[in-house]
C-alpha cells in the first residue's frame, strides 16, 4: 500500500537519509524504530508531503506521490511529533476545522463518531489548553482520523504520557485497525502494537521484518544445567570434542554445572540441542534443565543501533 523507495534526504551538507526502502501493507501496523536523530521523523515528514526527498520515491497504491503531496494528503491521517494543537480552540472546533480542510464538508455525525471513538465527548467543548496531556493526545489522534484516512502516520504518539494513558492510546491504535506507520522509543509498546518493525540508524535501514524473525536472526543462547561429579575444567574439552563450543561453563551448586552455548538460526539451535543431549548420554551426565533464550527486541535494538 505504501512503499518508500531508495529515499535520500539532505539538509545543506548534512545527509539525513541514505537510501531507505520499505513497504507497509494494507491493515498492517508497522513500528518505525531508531535512536534519536536516526531519521524517523524525516521519513514521516517526507511521506506526509511536509518535506520533499532529495532523491527517491514514495509510492501510494503504486503511484508516485512525492513532489505531488496533494495526491496523498486526503488519504493520510498524521499525528506529528509532540502533537502540536491550536490551544485556543475546543476539540470540537479543531476537528471541525480539520474536517473542512480535508473533506470540504461539515458532517456533524462524523465528528461525533470520532469523538466517541477517542473518548472525547465529555471534553469536546472545553478549550484544548485546559485538557490533560492524555486528552490532548486523543485530540491529535482524533484529528488524524478525520476523513477516514487510509494510512495513519503516528510520530511517537505516546511520548510524555503516563503508563495508564499510554495503555489507552495503545488500545485505541489497535482498535482502529488501519494501515499504520508508528514510531516510538518505548520498545515493549511497539511489541504490543506491531508485528512488523523497521529499524533505522543514522539514516540507514538496519533491519526490517516481523519482530519474531528479527529476534531470531540475531544470536541467541541455549543454557543447559547438568548434574555430574565431573570437574568443571574437564567439561569444556569434552563438549568441544562433541562439536559444541560453549560460551561459558560455570559451576552452580554442589554437583551442578551450567553450560551456555550461543547459536544463530533454527538449524543451529537444533544441532546444539541434539549435541548437548548426545554428550550427556555419552558421559552419563544428568540433564537437569535446558533453556533456550532468544534476544528480546530491546537487545536486538541495542545491538543494531549501538554504532
Amino acid at each position: 500500500m505504501l512503499t518508500v523507495k531508495n529515499l535520500y534526504k539532505s539538509f545543506g551538507k548534512t545527509q539525513v537519509l541514505h537510501g531507505i526502502n520499505f513497504t507497509v501493507k494494507e491493515k498492517q501496523i508497522v513500528g518505525l524504530l531508531g535512536p534519536n536523530g536516526a531519521g524517523k521523523t524525516t521519513i514521516m515528514r517526507i511521506i506526509t508531503g511536509f518535506l520533499s526527498p532529495s532523491r527517491g520515491e514514495v509510492l501510494f497504491q503504486g503511484k508516485k506521490v512525492n513532489g505531488e503531496a496533494e495526491k496523498i494528503k486526503p488519504f493520510l491521517g498524521y499525528l506529528p511529533e509532540n502533537n502540536p494543537l491550536y490551544s485556543f480552540l475546543t476539540p470540537w472546533e479543531y476537528l471541525e476545522f480539520i474536517q473542512a480542510a480535508k473533506t470540504s464538508q461539515k458532517e456533524k455525525s462524523e465528528l461525533e463518531r470520532i469523538l466517541k471513538i477517542c473518548d472525547l465527548v465529555n471534553v469536546a467543548r472545553q478549550p484544548i489548553d485546559t485538557l490533560s496531556r492524555g486528552y490532548k493526545q486523543r485530540v491529535g489522534l482524533a484529528a488524524a482520523l478525520i476523513g477516514d484516512p487510509q494510512i495513519l502516520i503516528l510520530d511517537e504518539p505516546t511520548t510524555g504520557l503516563d503508563p495508564n494513558q499510554r495503555e489507552e492510546i495503545k488500545k485505541l491504535i489497535k482498535k482502529l485497525n488501519k494501515t499504520t506507520l508508528f514510531s516510538s522509543h518505548v520498545l515493549p509498546e511497539v511489541k504490543d502494537i506491531c508485528k512488523e518493525v523497521i529499524i533505522i540508524n543514522k539514516g540507514k535501514l538496519i533491519s526490517q521484518g516481523k519482530i519474531s524473525q528479527i529476534s531470531k536472526k540475531k544470536k541467541a543462547t541455549i543454557t543447559a544445567t547438568i548434574v555430574t561429579q565431573e570437574n568443571k575444567e574437564k567439561i569444556t574439552p569434552l563438549l568441544k570434542s562433541a562439536g559444541i563450543n560453549p560460551l561459558s561453563v560455570v559451576k552452580k551448586g554442589k554437583n551442578k554445572i551450567k553450560i551456555e552455548v550461543e547459536y544463530s538460526g533454527r538449524k543451529q539451535a537444533d544441532n546444539v540441542r541434539n549435541g548437548l543431549w548426545k554428550v550427556c548420554q555419552k558421559y552419563r551426565w544428568q540433564l537437569y534443565e535446558l533453556k533456550e533464550k532468544e534476544q528480546t527486541l530491546e537487545e536486538v535494538f541495542r545491538e543494531l543501533t549501538k554504532e
Partner: peptide
C-alpha cells in the same frame, strides 16, 4: 515554534 505549521502543511492546503 509550536509545530502547528506541520499540521497545516500536511492538510490539503498549500
Amino acid at each position: 515554534k509550536k509545530g502547528t505549521w506541520e499540521i497545516l502543511l500536511t492538510l490539503p492546503f498549500n
